[in-house]
């Protein structure tokens, strides 16, 4: 185990990498507010257009951003379905009876199996999923051999389609924005940026410096602890603990056999680490100088102006329309 990427940071040196993390955090905050103020699909599409242009300028591969969307793909699908199913305003676009009978269920199972098999070879998993969803829809709609065990009317309203597209588009933009942040900012820079931004909170008793130090030490130890977990698993596997198989009761014991050593080692580590830090004169809450500092440059000003323009633009659109 050489190195584990923490978060989604991918080393690079495009435009976004050179930005101060504070600029990025503030800009994304305001851009998100802007996105929430937009009210029509057309406005959102324009926003997406602008976002894509920005990504291209920053030389961030769209492919990587799309890959970043993968974990929340299911969320998007559910949002889409919910919006369609629950919204009953506007004109009716289509209405169809969904039939659940012996034949449609059997063929649904077949479609499901086919999908799982294709999934193993296919690369376009998202497309495959969409194809699967459509196949299911047509399956239940057109296989009408009686008798039905159950049937219901699936009615799709104009407003429903509109809303679902709208919500999904909005989610897409927001996720893309945060992906750009995590993709181009080192976790340490991110914590430092947050620390500086939260600095004023000191007045209400929140010490952002200690907070940032805790986060950065945690980040530093993630690979170490991960490595250790693997070693402990190997050691327990050598004693017959098979983490992949076994009954639930056995599994519980095996998980304990992994967790107890991890906690005990972590406990010893924290004591030793505290000694090491104290011996190097660390005193919590005391003033320290910093080796890593943040500096605004000219591109931060451009970015700030651009964000301001976007924000003002959306307010204008909201007021005018």
């Amino acid at each position: 185990m050489n190195s584990i990427i923490i978060g989604q940071y991918i080393p690079g040196n495009g435009f976004f990498y050179k930005l101060d993390p504070r600029t990025k955090i503030i800009a994304i905050f305001f851009l998100m507010i802007s996105v929430f103020m937009l009210q029509t699909i057309v406005q959102l599409l324009i926003a997406i257009g602008i976002a894509v242009v920005i990504l291209l300028i920053g030389r961030i591969s769209l492919f990587k951003v799309v890959r970043g969307l993968k974990p929340i793909f299911i969320l998007l699908v559910f949002t889409f379905i919910f919006q369609i199913a629950l919204n009953t305003e506007g004109t009716v676009l289509s209405t169809a009876t969904m039939h659940f009978n012996l034949y449609s269920i059997i063929s649904a199972v077949l479609i499901f199996v086919l999908w799982r098999i294709l999934l193993r070879f296919g690369k376009f998993k998202i497309l495959l999923f969409l194809a699967f969803a459509f196949a299911l829809y047509f399956n239940f709609r057109y296989i009408t051999f009686q008798p039905d065990f159950y049937f219901f009317q699936l009615t799709i309203y104009e407003k429903g389609v509109e809303m679902s597209v709208f919500v999904v588009l909005r989610l897409l933009i927001i996720i893309t924005l945060t992906t750009v942040l995590t993709l181009t900012t080192k976790p340490t820079d991110l914590t430092q940026g947050l620390e500086r931004l939260m600095h004023p909170l000191k007045k209400i008793g929140f010490n952002s410096e200690d907070f940032a130090l805790i986060i950065s030490i945690s980040l530093r130890y993630i690979p170490t602890i991960f490595d250790e977990a693997q070693k402990i698993m190997a050691a327990q596997a050598s004693r017959g603990a098979d983490f992949s198989e076994g009954k639930l009761k056995d599994k519980l014991k095996q998980i304990i056999s992994l967790l107890v050593p991890m906690f005990i080692i972590a406990f010893m580590r924290s004591e030793e680490l505290a000694d090491a830090m104290e011996s190097r004169n660390f005193v919590p809450g005391e003033k320290r100088t910093r080796i890593n500092i943040l500096r605004f440059s000219i591109i931060d000003i451009y970015t700030g102006l651009f964000t301001l323009a976007c924000f003002a633009g959306t307010i204008l659109v909201k007021v005018m329309l």
């Binding site: 070693k231 402990i232 327990q236 050593p261 005990i264 080692i265 010893m268």
Partner: peptide, 10 residues
Amino acid sequence: VFQFPEYQLF
């Protein structure tokens, strides 16, 4: 048997 007993005692 691994190097550190801490990795297996629980």
